[in-house]
Nucleic acid binder design. Structure first.
Lengths: 156, 156
DNA sequence: TAATTTGGTTTCGTAAAGCAACCCTATTAA
DNA sequence: TTAATAGGGTTGCTTTACGAAACCAAATTA
């Protein structure tokens, strides 16, 4: 984490990064998406120090990305599960994964391909689309004037 | 940045975070997408220390996300422009922005809406889609067996 | 009763990130 | 000539992040 916090920034990207923009948080969310729920499993799979993991889990719970569930079972008592807010990071994580696979392919092994359960076919690359579903690049979009109250400040 | 580096991780998300996963880099890319190109403009808009900005710009150039262009003009001599790799972060940034707007709405002001130049209509939420363009949630996808060489290691 | 597992918290020391301030060069404007 | 601007680099200091290891409590297992 950095010194400067962006809780009050008027940029939603900065505010998002404030919650999941650190090193471990997004990886924790990723693993949670693949089914990891218990403290020790996160710790072993990520190779993260226990105090750091505890701190990140607490913060993710505070930010309503995960919720801590008391499962009254033998030995294992707590689970960390994604909230709807956490599950909503799915496109972010997948977009990042596809970007990483494309531009920094794995030194060994295959890029992960996700398939949808219904058809068994691979998913599409995540992209920005217009109202009709046509892909858009950054050159195809603009910010309407009324959306920028104080000059260009809404971009900062 | 963290102590542990993920250059050699077999997880593409970890490798992606290794390049743009720190506090400032993604915000720099965001501003670059909105047209910022010069050192001082980044510095003033982001409120970042000059040495940190210099470090991040150097790393982004090293990682081929930005390229440094010598424009032999009066006073301003260099510009930092997105490469194709950098522009390819567009879906990631937009997905993150939409997530931030949805779950942490701006305390004041409107969430930014992007529109496509051709039609003038707002863009769609970025999402994961199947081969036919239907939206997929995390519950709708799976990882085929042949894509996970050594047990669950490809997820780590 | 003793050992093990789960799920952490606390303490400690190190490495890194970060900011502020100063310095520096080159060019342009007044 | 004297700013002023662009584009940094360097130094010094503070704050964090991080990992390792110790510790701890409850519950289970042997």
């Amino acid at each position: 984490m950095a010194r400067k916090r962006f809780d009050d920034s008027n940029c939603s990207v900065a505010r998002a990064l404030n919650e999941v923009g650190d090193w471990w948080s997004l990886l924790i969310v990723l693993h949670a998406m693949y089914g990891t729920r218990r403290f020790v499993d996160f710790q072993q799979q990520l190779g993260i120090a226990k105090n750091i993991l505890g701190d990140r889990l607490t913060r993710l719970v505070d930010n309503d990305v995960l919720r801590k569930v008391d499962v009254g079972e033998h030995g294992s008592r707590f689970e960390y599960r994604l909230t709807e807010k956490g599950r909503d990071l799915f496109p972010v994580v997948i977009a990042l994964r596809q970007w990483g696979d494309k531009w920094n392919p794995a030194p060994e092994g295959t890029p992960l391909d996700l398939r949808d359960r219904a058809s068994g076919r691979s998913i599409q690359p995540v992209g920005v689309q217009d109202a009709d579903g046509n892909p858009l690049s950054i050159r195809d979009v603009f910010v309407p004037e009324e959306s920028t109250p104080d000059s260009k400040k809404s971009l900062a």
